[in-house]
């Protein structure tokens, strides 16, 4: 294997059932139900998925949900805003720990 990630492997996602059919079925049924239109529209869910895909840095998910978001009619501006939301949360998650750092520094400093 030349690379850890192969783009053609995305199409093989369903093949995970080969090693455990029951759990795969449960997962994909759940997955389908999660993305169906509900209190949130399919388009809104697609944008959330796109943001999460960036937060977890999954290249398969980024390809899949960039494409899905286009199909759902999302604009490029909406998609980039979703990525910035992920970025802000990730950045914020680091920065908020600065409080922990400050607490420690203040505790041990004169």
């Amino acid at each position: 294997m030349d690379n850890y990630y192969q783009s053609k492997d995305l199409k093989k996602f369903g093949e995970v059932e080969e090693f455990n059919k029951d759990l795969a079925k449960k997962f994909f049924d759940y997955y389908g139900a999660v993305f169906a239109e509900g209190a949130l529209t399919e388009r809104e869910k697609s944008l959330i998925a796109l943001a999460v895909a960036h937060a977890v840095q999954c290249p398969y998910c980024i390809d899949a949900y960039s494409h899905d978001a286009l199909e759902k009619g999302c604009s490029e501006e909406q998609m980039m805003e979703a990525v910035h939301v992920a970025s802000a949360i990730r950045g914020g998650a680091s920065l908020v720990h600065g409080v922990q750092m400050m607490n420690h520094v203040k505790k041990v400093s004169m």
Partner: peptide, 15 residues
């Protein structure tokens, strides 16, 4: 509506 690229159209009702 037709997609502006190499992808399929999404739900007609939603669009």
């Amino acid at each position: 509506y037709n997609p502006s690229g190499a992808f399929l159209p999404g739900s007609q009702a939603s669009l």
